[in-house]
Structures are given as structure tokens and as C-alpha cells.
Write a protein that binds this DNA or RNA. Sequence first.
DNA 1: TGAAAACCTACTAAAATGATAGTATAATGC
DNA 2: GCATTATACTATCATTTTAGTAGGTTTTCA
Lengths: 145, 145
Amino acid sequence: MMISARGRYALRMMVDVARYQGDGHVALKDIAARQQISQKYLEQIIPALNSAGFLTAVRGQQGGYRLTRSPGEYSLGEILRAAEGELSSVTCLDSHREPCARQADCDALPVWRELNRIIADYLDSVTLQNVLDQQIPETTIMTQE
Amino acid sequence: MMISARGRYALRMMVDVARYQGDGHVALKDIAARQQISQKYLEQIIPALNSAGFLTAVRGQQGGYRLTRSPGEYSLGEILRAAEGELSSVTCLDSHREPCARQADCDALPVWRELNRIIADYLDSVTLQNVLDQQIPETTIMTQE
DNA sequence: TGAAAACCTACTAAAATGATAGTATAATGC
DNA sequence: GCATTATACTATCATTTTAGTAGGTTTTCA
């Protein structure tokens, strides 16, 4: 799967924080309980969102997490990339790996490139606010003439 | 990855057969050599393409595989689905698994549905002939008003 | 000062992935 | 009709990824 539990959980955490932060902070314990996800597992995912600057944390009592921007200013693409490392439909185009030796004459590569582009374009066009509002934009694919 | 080696190899095999079949048949040995893929591994992938009716096989000397249709009549979507079982960006929407218990109130699910639709639309719009011609259509995503 | 929260790091079970290996079966040409 | 060539089938396996446990440390607030 291109989007694993890490990315899915990351998105659900961000939505949860957006929904419940109010003026204060949202504790991971509460996110875990509401979303029915192991808190210990979420603890491992959240540093990625934190170090990307998507959240601020406050320790101690009444501590927790808050968004650093308004929900409309986050794209799903950036959230998922932060959580997953990279969004690529095939390993051939994963920049964290050593490049495939066949890149020069692989017939399939242009397909994967274009597919990756479409996926990125879509995920970069949807915001956290869209998810919060349950208003996921419907789209069509147009072939360029 | 949503598209693993199975799907990538399947596509490359189909392209190879399309390119080299001429009036005869293409032996798996030759595909494996040209594509630099283990023949034994390809043997495991090809039955999926075979039973989907995408190829016909002839045994014995001068045997091998042939396409059953012209390259323009195969979409990449059907080839990849035959090889991979299913194309889904998330496990939540894999119809071969038991459905996720949270489907009813999952905020993220509509996103994955739409993402899956876009991916399917694109892959169903590209043909084997397109790949053969190295003419992968460029597309844009249009939001519906 | 103690409880509650984030933070950090190591470990582990299970599944998926990408093969390898060996054998059986069928068709063709000489 | 038999040797050769090729597909067909099934079992096994090593590696990597995934998803999750576990346990301890540090910070902050009431």
C-alpha cells in the first residue's frame, strides 16, 4: 500500500486535533481513545508531524498538541509526506533509495511518473479543513490536447 | 507500495510480448533475459495474465506467449489489477479484506475513495499501445464545480 | 512535590515481498 | 516415438516492511 497505517493515523490525528483543540491543547491519550489507536504507536508517528512544524506540543498537566496553522492551510499531501517519508506509487521513484539501473530504458517509468504526479496533485489540493467539513472535492482527469 | 514488483513486471512483460511477438510467440526465457528479471519469478506472475485472458500460451518448441488483443485494447488498469489482485491506495478499501469497523464514521475514508477513483481513472485511460509508443498522455486534475 | 503529560529508544511478532527450487506436463521437430 | 523445448504447478525461504509493545526519562503545571 502506498499509504500505510502511519499516514492514515497521522491524518486522523491532525483531524482530531483540529476538531478538539478549542483554545487549549489536545492530549495524545484522548486522541488515542477517540480514534481507537494505540497511544504508544501514535507516539512514534507524532514526532514526524512535530518536526515538520505542523504541531506544537506543551508538556505537563493540561498539555498536549495544537495545530500551528489554521486547518485550511494544511494540504493532505504535506501531512502524508511528513508521516510516510514519501508518497510514491512504485519503489522505482522513491528518492530515498538508490536509483533503479534500468531508469534510462524502462518502458514503464513514464507511466509511474505521471501516476505519481496525479496522486500528488490531488492530495496537495485537498486541505485538512476539507476533511473536517466532510467536503472532499470531486475531480476529473482531463487529458491535455 | 501500491504497485509492487508483481505489477511492474506484469506490465513490462506485456510490453515485451507486444513488441516482439511478430507473427509468432515470445518465450518466457527471452522476456526474462531482455527484461533482466528472474524467469522463475515471471512464471508465477504470468498465470494471472493468462487466466485473465490477456495472453495465449503455446508449449513446446517455438512456443511462448502472444497477446489475445491488439495493444491498444488493453488498459494498464486491467493489467495491473490482474497482476496485483487489486489497486487500492489504502488497505481500508481492499475488497479482499474484511471491511474496517470504522468505515461509518471515519473522516479520512472519503479521501481514500476519491484518491482510488483518480488512480483507477488514470490507469484505465492509458493503453499498452501508449506505453509501446512511449506516448504517455499528460493529464490535469479538474475540480468539479 | 507529585501527577500528568510529552519525549525517546529499543525490541518484537506478523505479514508482505521477491524471490529460488524442483517437478510435472504438453507440444513440436527430427 | 523420442529428445528437446517450453509452459505449468507447488513448495519453500530470506529479507524487508509494517504495526505494535514496552519501558524508561524529562518537563510542566496545579
